[in-house]
Amino acid sequence: MKTSRILSLIAAVAALAGAAFAQKPVELLNVSYDPTRELYVDYNAAFAAHWKAKTGQDVVVKQSHGGSGKQARSVIDGLRADVVTLALAGDIDAIANNARVLPSDWQKRLPNNSSPYTSTIVFLVRQGNPKGIKDWDDLVKPGVSVITPNPKTSGGARWNYLAAWEYAKRKQGSDEAAKEFVRKLLANVPVLDTGARGSTTTFVQRDIGDVFISWENEAYLAKKEFPGKGFEIVTPSLSILAEPPVAVVDRVAKRKGTVEVATAYLEYLYSEEAQDIIGKHFYRPTSKKAAAKYASQFGPVKLFTIDEAFGGWTKAQKDHFDDGGTFDQIYLKK
């Protein structure tokens, strides 16, 4: 009895001493979607400084990037993500439903449906817009080569798909017409990459395609990275409000003992400092101050939400992207 009490006392003292003096850097793994690579390089540095100032502890955030659907699949298969920062709620729902490593009401845990920023879908075209692309209608014309990733693996591609669908539905009045519109659009796509960044590379570096349906942030980044190529951004008349959400993967974080720092990591995304970084990387900040500061860099666009047009991600995923959904019906027939 006595020895065990002494031992536990020693352990407690050691733990305290450890906390006070030689804190080991804590490690987080952030599994994210494709275009956020540059954003999180900056944000991770900012968060590390913030966390160090607040707690004295060093934090190292490791990153993994890929198509959002593919990344979700990896987390389901056991990739030890402390936090997931994916392209759409449906992918985190898939993790919650299939691997049960976080509760199904995860989206209520942080403000704005757990989306620290929003974005939308725009078109990136070549210098001088030689094919005269102005709106979604121009993408289904014969002879226009369109670049978009594969909706099965990429989150961005699913936003693209739904934006095109809703545009056609509003214009022509029926789901059948919308399906035909999307079928024509996909017939103009020469390559379906697995993630948004792969598609950017196809369009920007391999010079394939006349128009790239892209995340707004990805389009601005490509424009900035390749000033010599003279890319132009075309904002369609209607697009979708994309809300890329973030979540702590409870089971993994608990096991690694990182719940506190992982939660702080996501909460800090809503701070003014982070919101400014977010705006700098061409995402649309949710804080009023940062949103106002960066408002002028984005084109005016009418946005609709997935909830009002498609009844939320679970339904949209089932109707359109699961096996046998509209994408399969269109694409497999091709």
């Binding site: 793994l29 690579r37 490791k62 993994s64 990896s74 960044r197 792969g198 590379t201």
Partner: peptide, 22 residues
């Protein structure tokens, strides 16, 4: 691999990542 930088990226995977990041 899971593509974790500095942890599970081999050299060929690292080449792809850098290329994709311009």
């Amino acid at each position: 691999s899971g593509h974790i930088r500095g942890e599970t990226n081999t050299l060929p995977l690292h080449v792809e990542i850098l290329y994709n990041e311009y």
